[in-house]
Design a protein around this nucleic acid. Structure first.
Lengths: 259, 259
DNA sequence: GCAGGCCCCG
DNA sequence: CGGGGCCTGC
């Protein structure tokens, strides 16, 4: 039996509903984590997703952030946000159990600029996330951390890396914060299957012909603990949705895990 | 030889460019008067219209109003607005000579409400228009007054007329102001050919299933002096564009004049 | 309900 | 560039 786990920063789930529903129909993932739904819960297109044969849990707000988990099986133990006394950020973090797999879907703060208070917040967010993994999960359980993590890790994860040193999504402190969370026991499944490929998951709307010129970033990830990593068959970035009418600036990444 | 004269309130010529270009290709009018272009002159899609084989003259402003004349032959004596000492309203009135026919394209003020200062302005606008016709044209010359005149004249020109008595587009004073201009020598060409039909040219976006339930207004007109009226062969409202994706709230009216 | 404007944001 | 707000207008 194969399990498909996917992630997509929708940049408004309402604007992306046609692309989302088409992708669900074409790829039939077992789990799809969404980030940047940009919809209050009353405005979330629950019915359309359920009509497509999926369960969905979500937490959003006006204009910014918002996460969802779209699952073939009903997710259990659904929790939003942190519970560590800091800002809960319920619209940036959702986790649940799906078919015996723990899934953690995050929309990590972008950070604005390395001299901005939001960058400090981003680094702190990674530290809080590591604590959450340590407190509530174990590296020997099947665990998938997915989402828009707003960091490109290696030079091949971003175009023109030499110009990105001071970018909040490529700065050394961000790298270290991310790698520290990975030290819990996570493997970057895409990179496992594609050790050298410069394929990106995000293309800024403002960059001219970004997709044709491959001017993007790989900032969306499927990260797994060993029990899942061992079963990983493939992990692909699907560029097609980024080429459609009214696309998100991100596109889908999907990983397959076998028996 | 047949001359086709048409009118269309585009509610943004930029948003309506696909529908407009398709309609030009399908109907090949000799003259098409546009209202509510909602584009400054620098933003007007001149090239696309010229590429379709038409001449075009236009005057617009940010967000509101804006008129254009789209013509197979090059229009001459092009003039915008009034020249009577009052507000010129150059983005509500354009006139020209086209193939020996005088064409006056108007976007008459809507009036807001009958107790609003804009309603007085609307009534005054009709009076100014009558003076313009008297000063610069003659009833025995071929003259077409076209456009969104923001008045439904008879009960069959609007759905549920009994509820419209206090509507600035149906109020008695508006009727009289319009009929006074018509006394110059104008005939409502659509009504000449369709004496009893309840067919409308405008359907409010807010009315549920407006077009299916025929909940509209006939507020767009082709009005002609006797030399043209005598040659009038047909006048139709084309509902198809109103049913397309991203329609204007108005649709096209087109009149044919024979030799 | 859908235009356009303006703002904030990445 | 394109989301979402919010405003105005019809």
């Amino acid at each position: 039996m194969i399990m498909k786990i996917a992630t997509f920063n929708a940049n408004s789930i309402r604007s992306r509903l046609p692309i989302l529903l088409q992708w669900l129909e074409d790829h039939k993932p077992d789990v799809l984590g969404i980030q940047e739904t940009k919809a209050q819960d009353v405005d979330f297109p629950k019915e359309a997703i359920e009509a497509a044969g999926y369960h969905v849990v979500f937490r959003g707000e006006k204009s910014y952030n918002g996460v969802a988990l779209i699952c073939k099986s009903e997710p259990t133990d659904v929790k939003f946000g942190f519970d560590d006394g800091g800002p809960a950020d319920e619209t940036r973090l959702v986790r649940a159990m799906v078919d015996g797999v723990a899934v953690v879907n995050t929309y990590v703060p972008q950070g604005r600029a390395i001299d901005h208070v939001m960058y400090k917040y981003k680094l702190g967010w990674y530290a809080r996330l590591k604590k959450l993994f340590e407190a509530e999960y174990a590296p020997d359980q099947p665990l998938a951390w997915i989402g828009d993590i707003n960091i490109a890790v290696e030079p091949i994860d971003v175009n023109r890396p030499e110009t990105r040193k001071d970018d909040p999504c490529y700065h050394i402190d961000a790298h270290n914060a991310f790698l520290d969370v990975c030290s819990f026991g996570f493997t970057d499944v895409f990179r496992k299957h594609h050790p050298d490929e410069e394929i990106y998951s995000f293309f800024d709307y403002r960059a001219k012909d970004a997709i044709a010129k491959n001017l993007g970033w790989r900032i969306d990830y499927v990260l797994t603990t060993d029990p899942l990593t061992a079963k990983s068959i493939s992990c692909e970035i699907d560029l097609e949705p980024r080429k459609k009418e009214k696309p998100s600036d991100h596109t889908f990444m999907v990983a397959e895990f076998g028996a």
